[in-house]
Amino acid sequence: MTVRVTLLSPAMSSAVREARFDDDASLDASGLAAARSAAGTLPSPGTALSSPSARCRQTAAALGLTAAPHEALRGCAMGSWRGLRLDEVAAERPEQVAAWLADPAAAPHGGESLQQLGGRVGGWLDGLAAESGRVVAVVEPDVVRAAVVHALDLPAPVFWRLDVPPLAFTVITGRAGRWNLRLGAATAGG
């Protein structure tokens, strides 16, 4: 069976604007307006899901989706770094940030490693193998990165080379063991 998974990153929030490790901040006014203006550009989903974060749930609602929050789609648990800006952490704990960036198994913040994030997201994606049709999920950018790395069986360091701007569509089609990344679609359903 083949499934089409459209991953949509959430609209702008203060955490993104300030390069802050997510603290479950809500969308800001410009993010909410952008999400509302994107309503109607998504394909009709058979299943609509979201990360449990406020900004993902708010983005989904602004898009007109009745999306169920799904725990496997939550962003990486950042432990003691939650709510801090990356530049603050890098200035105070440069060795920890270097270890986190260099080693996918490292979790110097006491939260979840990128390897654990990838395993969780990859397990969710492969669990869709028994389904067919369309899944639309509004998820954190790190979840999009982890899904792409897993789907294409890329080396873990590629995670850091993937940019996921607000309200970006990423379409993965296929089934467990054979995923394709669809590039260049004008809209998520295009």
Rank of each mutant, 00 (worst) to 15 (best):
A54Q: 13
Q58W: 05
V89C: 07
L114I: 11
G133D: 11
G127E: 11
R93D: 15
Q58S: 03
G75N: 11
M78S: 05
V136P: 00
G79I: 14
P69G: 07
P108R: 04
W81C: 11
G75K: 01
Q58C: 01
Q96H: 10
A54C: 10
G133M: 12
G111W: 05
A91F: 09
G75L: 01
P69I: 06
R74A: 14
S53W: 08
R82Q: 15
P69E: 08
G127H: 10
A54G: 07
V121L: 03
E140K: 01
G122N: 09
M78L: 14
W124C: 09
A129Y: 03
L86V: 14
H109E: 12
A77T: 02
R57G: 11
G122W: 04
E140P: 06
G110M: 06
P94V: 07
A98H: 10
L114N: 14
S113R: 07
G123K: 12
G118R: 13
A106P: 07
L125R: 08
G83L: 07
E71G: 06
T59L: 03
A137S: 00
G79K: 04
A106S: 12
G79L: 08
L117K: 11
R57Q: 13
A54F: 00
S113W: 11
R82C: 15
G110L: 10
M78C: 08
E95D: 15
G83E: 12
G123V: 10
T59M: 05
A72T: 02
L114W: 10
A90P: 02
E71A: 13
R134E: 15
D103T: 06
A107D: 05
L65G: 07
E88L: 02
G122T: 06
A130V: 13
E88N: 04
G118P: 12
A102W: 10
S50R: 05
A61I: 00
G133T: 12
G64D: 05
H70L: 09
A99N: 01
A62M: 10
S132F: 03
P69A: 05
R55V: 01
Q96V: 00
A61N: 01
S53E: 15
A60D: 06
A98C: 03
A98Y: 04
G79V: 13
V89E: 04
E140W: 00
C56W: 02
R57T: 12
R74I: 00
A129M: 01
Q115W: 09
E88Q: 14
A106N: 06
R74D: 14
G122L: 02
